[in-house]
Structures are given as structure tokens and as C-alpha cells.
Amino acid sequence: MSEHIVSLLALLLLLQVKHMFADFFLQTPRMLSGRSIYLHLGRAQHATVHLIGTAAVFLLLSSPVLFAIMICVLEWIAHFHIDFAKARYNECKSLKPNQAHYWWAMGTDQALHQATYLAMGWAWCAFVLV
């Protein structure tokens, strides 16, 4: 297996671990309440937790600082809006965890976050590993 493939797999694994902690273990009540409001401080704080974790991952893998900053800002924007869309949908439909559509929204939210990580992996290969 080539060094680049190992590097990409390490990146994706670290992003998965970061995502698990940021999306599930490190959320505060402020981050979880009122999420269907667009300019929500809690969601901004949540996206910032992701930004910090992603920065740590890319810097751990010796990424150029400018690349890490750009990726982190783009992820912050994506994460903020993905979470807003899910929260808005859940509120508009009055969805609760005992309803299938709630879990469809959760699954779509998580799939979009994973697609973001694949895009970040592509950028890593295209701009860092060249």
C-alpha cells in the first residue's frame, strides 16, 4: 500500500474520531437548544468545536498551516449549514426521535458530514500530497 493511501486513510480515521467527539460527546445544552434559528450562537460554538478538532487533525498530519486554515473555515461553514438544515427540517415537520423521518434527517445530516470529510480527503490528496 502506498504512503499516500496510508496517509489518506489515517486522515479519514482521525476525522471520524474527531466527528464522534464533536458531534456527540462535546455538545452542551446551549449547542443543542434553539438550533432551528439561523444565527444561533450554540450552533456556531458547535461548528467551532469541529473547526478546532479538524485543525488539530491536519496539523498533527503536518499540513501546511494555510491549507489547514482554509479547510477549517470551509468545514465550519458546511457544518453550520448542514446542522441548520436538519434542525429547521425537524422543527418544520415537528419531528421527534420516535418518528422515522427524524432518523432520516439524522442519517442525511451524518451522510453530508461524511461527504464533507471525503471532500477534505480529496483536497488533502490534491493539494498536500502532490
Rank of each mutant, 00 (worst) to 15 (best):
W104Q: 02
A115T: 00
I77N: 00
N90P: 04
M1K: 13
H4T: 12
K86R: 10
L95A: 01
F80E: 09
Y117E: 02
A115L: 12
G121T: 15
Y38F: 03
L51W: 10
A119I: 05
E91I: 01
M1W: 13
A85N: 07
A44G: 12
I52R: 11
M20L: 09
L15A: 09
G34C: 02
H4M: 12
A55N: 11
L8H: 08
G42A: 05
A68W: 05
L60T: 15
M120S: 00
L112D: 00
W124L: 07
I52Q: 11
A126H: 08
N98H: 09
I82M: 07
V73E: 13
W76G: 03
L32V: 06
I69R: 02
L9M: 14
Y89S: 07
W76P: 04
W103V: 06
V65P: 07
A100N: 11
V17R: 04
L8R: 09
Y117I: 06
D23G: 05
H113K: 04
P97N: 02
R35I: 00
V128T: 08
L14H: 14
A10T: 15
A111P: 00
G107K: 00
A10C: 11
A55Y: 03
Y102M: 00
H19F: 13
Y89E: 05
H79Y: 12
H50F: 01
L129I: 08
A119C: 11
E3P: 15
K93E: 08
F24E: 06
G121D: 07
G121L: 08
V128Q: 05
W104K: 06
A119T: 07
S36T: 01
A44S: 09
A85L: 05
E91F: 06
N90A: 02
L95T: 01
W122R: 02
K18S: 05
I71K: 06
F67Q: 00
Y89K: 01
F127K: 15
F127E: 15
F21D: 10
H50E: 04
V17L: 06
L129P: 14
L14Q: 11
L74D: 02
